[in-house]
């Protein structure tokens, strides 16, 4: 084993290794480095004591500070609720109609409702509630399938349409064509009548009128004004959910009478709290078409 000895020039120890008379100095580490090293060792031991660190047989060491990220979240949420409670407590306590009447509460509900809408509703109904042609209703116009009053909107948002929630809005149009309730000829005639009705054209003498009166008015009402109670859309205007262009109207009516498509919407009370739904209601009502 090579011997370690002091170098006479620098006064440092050598490693004892020698190559052709050249010896390697064993210069100690800088003092500051050594201090930082020992500081990190002490820090890590203190951290083990203070924070959750070691697994035990059935548990883990909790640390004297008792930190847990989920507990921290609880207190964060509590603080946030506290900060918002000035408005949210009031919104929770009163009806949506009264929220709209109070200027401050309405502003708060509009801002919160917009955020909620963009997170939850915009994927179907589009940013600003413009809807998706051929798929999801426009919420920024004056036409409502299930009603555009605040109470109607709140009901629809809370329980949705044609889903598994027991309070969901339910209705189904019969398959007049697929189930053989009407012949293809009759469907063609009734489609002509509906097209005339929707474009405010003359319906006099159309053979579809009698069929419409017999089969369709139960839900779509006299003159095709529709019914918000059963979610039957108005047919006396040019607003169509399942169509792309003007030329397609008759074909869409034929398809719908033959084998109807039905939209569906989730029940948001299963995901959002009552206050959030009230705020959403206020926002949707404001989009343009609220009654």
């Amino acid at each position: 084993m090579a011997s370690m000895e002091k170098d006479s020039v620098s006064g440092q120890y050598t490693t004892g290794h020698e190559w052709d008379g050249i010896r390697e100095l064993n210069t100690p580490l800088p003092k500051w480095w050594v201090y930082v090293f020992w500081a990190t060792v002490i820090w890590s031991i203190a951290y083990w004591v203070a924070m959750p660190a070691w697994p035990t047989i059935n548990d883990y060491s909790r640390g004297v500070l008792g930190y847990a990220s989920r507990n921290e979240l609880e207190s964060d949420i509590k603080a946030q609720k506290q900060a918002r409670s000035k408005f949210e407590a009031k919104i929770a306590a009163i009806s949506v109609d009264d929220v709209v009447k109070d200027k401050d509460l309405r502003n708060f509900a509009m801002t919160g409702g917009k955020v909620l809408f963009n997170d939850n509703c915009a994927p179907c109904h589009g940013t600003g509630g413009v809807g998706a042609p051929g798929a999801y209703p426009n919420l920024a116009d004056d036409e409502w399938i299930w009603g555009g009053e605040l109470a109607d909107l709140k009901q629809t948002i809370s329980f949705g349409v044609r889903n598994t929630n027991e309070n969901s809005r339910q209705s189904e149009m019969p398959k007049f064509g697929a189930d053989g309730l009407l012949t293809a000829e009759q469907i063609n005639q009734v489609a002509d009548y509906v097209v005339a009705l929707s474009s405010k054209g003359s319906t006099a003498g159309l053979p579809g009128e009698a069929i419409f009166a017999e089969q369709c008015v139960v839900c779509h009402q006299d003159g095709g004004v529709g019914s918000k109670d059963v979610g039957s859309p108005a047919l006396n205007n040019n607003i169509w959910l399942f169509k792309g262009s003007k030329e397609q109207v008759k074909q869409v009516v034929i398809n719908q009478v033959t084998n109807p498509q039905h939209g569906s919407m989730p029940a948001w009370s299963e995901r959002l709290d009552e206050t959030s739904i009230k705020m959403l209601t206020v926002y949707v009502h404001s989009l343009g078409g609220g009654k």
Binding site: N120, P123, C124, A135, Y136, N163, G263, S264, M265, P266, E270, R271
Partner: peptide, 8 residues
């Protein structure tokens, strides 16, 4: 899950 409809 449940946030959007099957159709969507």
């Amino acid at each position: 899950g449940g946030k959007y409809t099957n159709d969507w």
